[in-house]
Computed example of a mutant assay.
Amino acid sequence: MRVSAYLVLALFALAGCLPVPRTEEVKLMTLEADFTPSATQADGPALLVALPRARAGYDSAGMAYWRAPQELAYFARHRWVDTPPRMLAPLLVQALEASGGFSAVLAAPAVARAGLRLDTEVLRLRQNFSTSPSRVELVLRAQLSNVKTAEPVATRTFAATVPCAADDPVRGAEAANQAVRLVLTELAQWAAETARR
């Protein structure tokens, strides 16, 4: 019995001397964008912005990339700080406020009365390595609806493709931020013009 106790202690001591395998630190990336406020402030309706949704494959914090048809993969050591829909939600509100087309822009689940509701869906957010340099593709579908009747007013798909400065996830995140600014600026202008009509 004593021999096995010594053997266990020796194994623990030996385990303490062995080098612990190092794991690579995961880097967290963010989606960010700045929007220039419109010089004119329209007296449009209040707009309720629903939390964006995402197509399957894009509703995780994994940073997606693509090399061949039907193959979606994720970087092992780089992730988004949150899912793309949750990161886009406050940016959508900022872009719509900057458009100057609405009396108020409210993020769901706000309970204030609004005339229009905006629903969006991330159809694609990925770094495409099928070309060189790689490029980031962002595709976002938007639908404006009348809050009272729940009937769609207008629907449109917005897309941007931005080349990456280098073929790595950090440069991919930079390109993604440029794509977000382009898409959300265009979406906000469209929403403001639609609301005016």
Rank of each mutant, 00 (worst) to 15 (best):
A68V: 14
V111H: 14
R55T: 15
T83F: 02
E97G: 08
E71S: 14
D119I: 05
V105Q: 02
L125K: 00
F102M: 07
A89M: 07
S103Y: 08
L72S: 02
A108F: 05
R126A: 13
D119N: 11
D82I: 04
L92P: 08
S103E: 10
L96I: 02
Y65L: 08
F75E: 14
S60I: 04
L88S: 07
L116V: 02
A46G: 13
G100S: 13
V111R: 15
S60M: 04
L91P: 03
A108M: 05
Q70R: 14
L96A: 04
T131R: 14
L125N: 02
R79N: 13
E121A: 03
A68F: 07
A107F: 01
T83E: 10
E71K: 13
P45R: 15
R55E: 15
P69G: 07
E121Y: 01
L106Q: 07
W66F: 13
L125T: 00
S60V: 08
R53W: 05
L96K: 09
L48M: 14
P109V: 04
A54R: 02
V122R: 03
A61E: 14
A108P: 06
R67Y: 09
R117P: 00
G62T: 00
R77W: 07
G101E: 06
A46I: 06
F75G: 02
L91D: 07
V49K: 03
R79H: 09
R67E: 14
T131E: 15
L72K: 05
V122Y: 03
L91N: 09
Y74E: 09
F75Q: 07
S60G: 04
L48A: 02
R117W: 03
W66L: 11
G44P: 02
L125F: 01
L125A: 03
T83W: 01
R113T: 11
S99V: 10
R113S: 13
D43N: 15
P52L: 01
L106N: 06
S130Q: 09
P90I: 12
M63W: 00
F75N: 10
A89T: 06
T131P: 01
Y74N: 01
V93R: 13
R55C: 02
A114S: 15
Q70A: 14
V122L: 02
W80Y: 04
A112Q: 15
A112K: 15
Q94R: 15
T120S: 07
P109F: 08
L88M: 07
L116D: 04
A104I: 09
M87Y: 06
P85G: 03
R113V: 12
E121H: 01
G100T: 11
L48H: 08
R124Q: 14
R53Y: 07
P69N: 13
F102E: 08
T120E: 05
P90H: 09
R77Y: 05
R79S: 06
L123V: 01
T120V: 04
D82Y: 02
G100C: 12
L116F: 04
W66S: 11
Q94C: 10
R55V: 10
E97Y: 10
A68D: 11
W80D: 06
Y58V: 00
E97L: 14
Y58D: 03
R67S: 10
F75W: 12
